[in-house]
Design a protein around this nucleic acid. Sequence first.
DNA 1: TTGAAAGCGCTAACAT
DNA 2: ATGTTAGCGCTTTCAA
Lengths: 339, 339
Amino acid sequence: MRYPVAPPTLADVAERAGVSRQTVSNAINNPDLLRADTLARVQEAIEELGYSPNRAARNLRTRSSHLIGLKFQPAQEGTANAAMDRFVHSLVETAGGAGYHILLFAVGEDEDHLRGYDDLLRATAVDAFIVTDTYLGNPQAAWLRQRRAPFVSFGRPWDDDAADHPWVDVDGAAGVDLATTHLLDRGHQRIAWIGWHKDSRIGEDRRSGWTRAMHGRNLSTTGLASRTEDTVSSGHDAAAVLLDEAQPSAFVCASDTLAMGVLHTLRDRGLTPGHDVSVIGFDDSQVAQVINPGLTSVRQPLEEVAVEIVRALEGLLSTPAVVSPGVLLTPTLAVRETG
Amino acid sequence: MRYPVAPPTLADVAERAGVSRQTVSNAINNPDLLRADTLARVQEAIEELGYSPNRAARNLRTRSSHLIGLKFQPAQEGTANAAMDRFVHSLVETAGGAGYHILLFAVGEDEDHLRGYDDLLRATAVDAFIVTDTYLGNPQAAWLRQRRAPFVSFGRPWDDDAADHPWVDVDGAAGVDLATTHLLDRGHQRIAWIGWHKDSRIGEDRRSGWTRAMHGRNLSTTGLASRTEDTVSSGHDAAAVLLDEAQPSAFVCASDTLAMGVLHTLRDRGLTPGHDVSVIGFDDSQVAQVINPGLTSVRQPLEEVAVEIVRALEGLLSTPAVVSPGVLLTPTLAVRETG
DNA sequence: TTGAAAGCGCTAACAT
DNA sequence: ATGTTAGCGCTTTCAA
């Protein structure tokens, strides 16, 4: 940042306050070391000069940047998935409160996925990372661990038994259980599930909430489930097949995107959502909120996720480092007209 | 970032390559100063050691961080507005290509809106800012200018005649003109407008595209316009009134949020969108993309916006600084079933 | 074309 | 409780 004139330095403050540079540094970082009147004098000088410590110098000296790296991936077009937006905001706010800023980076389509991490790491540009996609076969977590880079993941280390990093996740099974139980309590018995393919651990986790709730009431799930792609048209097709073959009175879906597909099928057939057939989605997207009738949906507590992640990060970056245990948070159900 | 061992420094590379530290620095920043064989030897050493220049040290020395500050505001719940997500991603990618990273910061609800900027500025933590909300009465632009902080705004300096900063914006009037003309070409004559209150410059700009297109065909706009809040229910109410009082055959809206309200009204009345009454929104949100029938909507070229912003930023940060003129980009129309 | 010296602004360690 | 010294890793002079 080019200033009109050079911004004030520690030395300027020291001179003005009639103390040494070190005393000014202490006034900022260890104020309790100073005598009250000295502290007051220094703070006054800081105020008058509008002084803030130069980040680069402080970073160089302390070997830390107070920057947290986050790979930013946009919501996919044509889907209703937009949790990233809400999550990032919560994160920026919470991290800011703890003295950290979020540094965004992207990785090009064809590029090595570890490239962005590696560059930042080697340049000692960030103190830690937040990793958001810990799905099967994603090498990021293992690679970061091997590199001894501090990081916290939003998402459980599903497949990695050796994982010993802090993580925060949302209990998808509990969320779907909540949704299913909500429908059961409203008298539904034949509740169908539309989810993702079997290799999606998150999808299987969410699905288990449905079977758990159904079996808890001694209801069979046979023939009531479908696994498909996370697109509107897949949800549409799956719902059509299920309606024909299993006559469900309600659908619980792994995403709002799939739920939208179900709503389209109901529309095709002149069925009224929430009256003839109930539908519940997952993520409480903007779509769920603005359509009419409103889509009932499982809502992830992303604000809490951010708080827990920052907490874990602070542990990791303190000395000695504290590796906090995994945190599993429970989602809520945003009830609207469709269910 | 705490490394397992200290990461290699310039001195390590120099020693390994049998040259001085300065030569290594030149190999990185001014490679054409070196003899080919020296350069090769240095590069080999860099490779072997996995060396990257330490950011903090470089920042301190060069007085620049290669960080761009961006105040991150999340999409409002209950609306369909989510342009930020797509914009931020484009920005992160484009900026990355130019050697810059995006640093996110937030400002608490009750806090001074300039606080975040001031802190980063005084700490020389960022080289420049990107400002996204240049609406009436927003003091950010004027304040940054007065502070002589480099910044580029996404949005025209609507009210600030003294503004001399680079900006990039999307021509909302052209977008709405495009939408209106599209409807006119399909035979519509009574096309209504639902927009925001008069004090929204962006809203008035978009509205002018509608009047321009209508008047261009010698059609009256009298009684066909409504100004309201940017909420679904406001759009719903406005559409009901217009249908009763002006019998429009189509609606053009200032946002997808308002368009959703219109669709609800059509549904109330058993009217089929795109058949009985056409509807066009603005922003090409996820909502527009996943509902059925799909909502025709004006789409902002956010990728291009990012490219232009980064270009302007590079000019601003070069020496001597180049203040590029404002850039106005034209949106496109994403045509779907409702219009 | 390469090397040596200086110093960016800060804080940790030590001395007073 | 405050001051002095040194040095983080880099790049910008300047000299060879």
